[in-house]
Amino acid sequence: MDLERFVRERRERWARLETLLSDVERLPSHALGVARLDELVRLYRQTCSDLSEARSLTANAELLGRLNALAGKGYRFIYRRAYGRRLIETVRRFFTDDVPATFSRERGVVLCASLAFLAGAIVGLGAVLRDARNGERLIPAEFFSESPRARVERIESGEERVDSLAKAGEFGAYLFSHNIQVAFLAFSLGAVTIVGGLWILFYNGVILGAIAGLYLLDGVHVFFLAWVGPHGALEIPAILFGGAAGLRLGRALLLPGDLTVATTIRRAFASVWRMLIAAALILIIAGLVEGSFSQFSAKTIPYALKIAAAVALLLALGVYLFRRPVRSVAEGPWAS
């Protein structure tokens, strides 16, 4: 077991591989050059065999650890995945093909998430319509400063809440940041527990249903629709999409069936990350609408127009996402 000589003879090639690897990690792939890649691959293979040899020679933790790290680094570089398309083309295809195709393909989980939310909404609405006091029990106290009718009168008689671009921008930014957090939370809970994701969607449905019920009881439901509709038409679907993406990943993670988890979640990734990005982008638009358009009362924009805008937005979103894809989607290399 001549470990000293083993190391002495090979030390230089290991050092060379190390420098080469740190060089190439900084370079774009077209600037690598054939000669350098050849050398890199050759050295990597030698290092791999050195690692095997060293394992039979010694249990020296330092040497093995270092060789292991070096071989791992080489492996990571050589077997990495190449990105073929250009950025602009990728972005364009993302919106024209990938996102609609993803949602068409995953309509099952979207339906599942929507049903959970809808069930919550019906429960919330029903509970409040049966007994208005249920509203106080279901809705967190901070939403309960005044009765719906009083609030509507205050808003309709006073100045517009959002009267400048500055306020609209700031308010909108706050709203979409917060909503994206909520969507990610719904996603995460769905992904790691499934049930938690369904529960948070259900719970949000209950709250919205209960609030709607209170406005309905007070006879100001038109105001409610015009107030919540324009951004809600985007915001609610987007949160559902976040939750649905979580359910999709959760199914792969917790119910992999005959395959290994590593395989099933890699198949899910292609759909899941597109749904997440789509949800975040929709929430940004929704936040901007909520920060400006939604805040205007009847003095500025008639409620009929606001409700029409809400319906139009919802329809547009539905048509964009759930029409049949024109051509098959480009999937990640892991997707089957």
């Binding site: 492996y75 990571r76 990610f184 996603f187 995460s188 992904a191 990943l249 292609a270 997440l276």
Partner: peptide, 26 residues
Amino acid sequence: VVDGRGLPLAIEQSFIRNAVRALDVL
């Protein structure tokens, strides 16, 4: 951070990993 198979992260893995941060920070 590496992929579970020892490779570099794919962009979707990175996105998902960081979206779930919303739950991890709680």
